[in-house]
Nucleic acid binder design. Structure first.
Lengths: 187, 187
DNA sequence: TGTGTTTTTTAACATTTGTAAAAAGCTAAA
DNA sequence: TTTAGCTTTTTACAAATGTTAAAAAACACA
């Protein structure tokens, strides 16, 4: 997936603004297993996935909790670090070899202050994530584990083939045993 | 709470931008029980709470699900309607007599396109909500019902005195019976 | 104060989900 | 092919939470 397309998904930019944004981006590659963002760090960069799958997780008392997957085209960033400048609570682990577009947060914020089109692009970036996060929160509150699994099959069937079930279960807010039970029940 | 303070909480605006924003706002008052926003409608306005408490809920198969409370200073809007222009899935009910600042979404978006400071203010509005929503999502995924209740006591103790427990229980993703059990257990 | 309404708590039971451990399945390297 | 390691499913049991209904408490107001 190329950067023009990723950028335009959020908000169509005039040519000079787009050029300014792309000028700050550089392409990077990391292998499967690499930890791209680390918790307790203040991140300096955000990424967009050109190729690959990643997961976001936090370390909790009972073990790791996976709360987000990113596939081609997705923005990869610690929202907390990006937005508040505070330490991140999430780790981003590469589940496949990945290629990213890397953007420096400070440069990006400087652009937001200078270029109104980019400020609106940055607004759309946050708004886009907000709608998705809110939908998931509501699903967690009033759907059963089985419904959440069915929803995922409907909306991201490919993800199930690329990510191991333990991570999917955590993402859906259930134990791996529960997910296995649901899968067995559907046969 | 006055509108200057509410606006500045998100992003400090230069005087002319602030004046332009305030010029589009009008003050409105509605009684307890009034439904400010309705599901399945495309909303034309967003609000900020000058005084009062509101809740956002959706109608689900098993009954209403309360997924948000707003108190003084909070933005009140259907994120879906505001962001995507699609029909809202939420209702906003006033739990007390309320006063709001009302802003027209179309006017607001026009300002975003013309004024870079307001575009950045709009970005902060979305980013602010995003961080809060993400924190709640993660809590839903890996905290127990009791921990979620304790967190709420810690972060919004006043809310418990203004909102009936059935709504709080729904907001925390548990039945009212569970919430009663937790409260009994803490004594 | 007394009465009717709403809210909260309690009780009993059913269901869901979790935990831990074992079994089965799969993959890749020797 | 065999082995070792990792993932997924299954089993048995425990804990948490839900549902329904009823009792108790709190509240509103004539």
């Amino acid at each position: 997936m190329d950067i023009d397309k990723i950028i335009a998904t959020l908000y169509v930019l005039p040519e000079p603004s787009k050029a300014a944004l792309i000028a700050t981006a550089k392409q990077v590659t990391y292998p499967k297993g690499y930890i791209l963002l680390k918790a307790d760090r203040i991140e300096k960069n955000i990424y967009f996935i050109k190729k690959g799958v990643v997961r976001a997780y936090s370390d909790a008392p009972g073990g790791q909790v996976t709360f987000w997957f990113g596939v081609e085209g997705a923005p990869v960033l610690s929202m907390k670090s990006y937005i508040t400048g505070e330490k991140s609570y999430e780790n981003i682990e590469l589940l496949e070899d990945c290629e990213f577009f890397e953007l420096n947060i400070a440069s990006l914020k400087a652009l937001y202050e200078k270029d109104i089109h980019l400020a609106n692009w940055g607004r759309k970036l946050a708004e886009h994530e907000l709608v998705k996060t809110e939908e998931r929160l509501i699903a967690m509150q009033f759907k059963t584990a089985q419904e959440r699994y069915m929803d995922l099959i409907g909306s991201q069937p490919a993800l199930l083939l690329r990510v191991q079930l333990g991570y999917i279960a955590s993402y859906l807010g259930m134990s791996q045993v529960s997910l296995s039970r649901i899968r067995a029940g559907l046969k």
